[in-house]
Each structure stands twice: as C-alpha cells, then as structure tokens.
Amino acid sequence: MAHIIVVGNEKGGAGKSTVSMHVATTLARLGHKVAALDLDLRQRSMGRYLENRKDFCVKSGLDLPMVEIHELPEIDPASLQPGENIYDHRLSAAVSALEP
C-alpha cells in the first residue's frame, strides 16, 4: 500500500525541502520505492537536489538507492470548469500517475 507524506509550511526557508529530501532518501535506503513531487514550482530545491544526487552517482559510479522525482504535468486550461484551480488538477494528475 502506498503512503503519502506531506511536508509543508507557509514560511520560506523553514527546511521543508531539506526534511523532504532526508525522509525520501532514508526511505529509499531502507528499500522502499519512493517517488517525490516538488510542489515549489519556482525554487525546485528538492527536485534540484535529487537531480544533482543522481548525476553525482552516475559520474562517480556509485549505486545508491534513488528517489524518483516527478514534475507536475501540464493541464490544458481549456479543460477546466469555471472556478476550478489548475494546480489542483496538476497535483491530482501527478498523484494518479504514481498510484500504480
């Protein structure tokens, strides 16, 4: 069964990406299959960290457990009903894609 862990705080610089990265990589090291969605679409701190980790491992020949990072899919604004939030749809589509 899949579990969803959310790390959130409205304040910038509170350590959300750092905590998320440590939780995700620790779960991967424990043998769990882990996927991550970085919802900070501007900064992408966690996404950039995981991309850099993957690149470092490839360059160094290291075989470390990896976390799959997924981007939020684009949604056609024309497909939305009045009052619907495009970001809600992007998040729902991303989570649905990870369910299998």
Rank of each mutant, 00 (worst) to 15 (best):
A2E: 08
A2I: 14
A2K: 08
H3S: 09
H3K: 15
V6D: 01
G8T: 13
G8D: 03
E10Q: 15
E10V: 10
K11N: 05
G13C: 05
G13S: 06
A14D: 03
G15M: 07
K16Q: 02
K16R: 11
T18N: 13
T18G: 02
T18F: 05
V19P: 06
V19C: 12
V19Q: 02
M21A: 12
M21D: 08
M21V: 11
H22D: 02
H22R: 11
H22V: 03
T25V: 13
T25R: 13
T26W: 09
T26Q: 08
T26Y: 11
A28F: 10
A28K: 08
R29K: 13
L30G: 07
L30T: 01
G31C: 07
H32F: 08
V34Q: 01
A35R: 14
A35M: 15
L37K: 04
D38V: 09
D38I: 03
L39I: 10
L39C: 09
L39V: 03
D40H: 01
D40K: 01
D40E: 12
L41S: 08
R42K: 09
Q43Y: 05
R44L: 14
S45N: 10
S45E: 04
G47T: 02
G47L: 06
G47C: 08
E51S: 05
N52D: 10
R53M: 11
K54A: 11
D55P: 03
D55G: 03
F56T: 12
C57F: 04
V58N: 06
K59P: 00
K59R: 13
K59E: 15
K59G: 02
S60R: 14
S60F: 05
L62V: 05
L62N: 12
D63K: 15
L64M: 14
L64A: 08
P65M: 07
P65T: 03
M66W: 00
M66T: 12
M66H: 10
V67C: 05
E68S: 11
H70N: 13
H70A: 14
L72Q: 01
E74K: 15
I75G: 06
I75E: 12
I75N: 09
D76N: 15
P77V: 07
P77N: 04
S79I: 06
L80I: 07
L80W: 04
Q81E: 13
P82K: 10
N85A: 14
I86T: 01
I86Y: 05
D88P: 01
D88H: 12
H89W: 14
R90H: 00
L91N: 00
S92N: 04
A93R: 10
A93L: 11
A93V: 06
A94P: 03
V95D: 01
E99Y: 11
P100M: 04
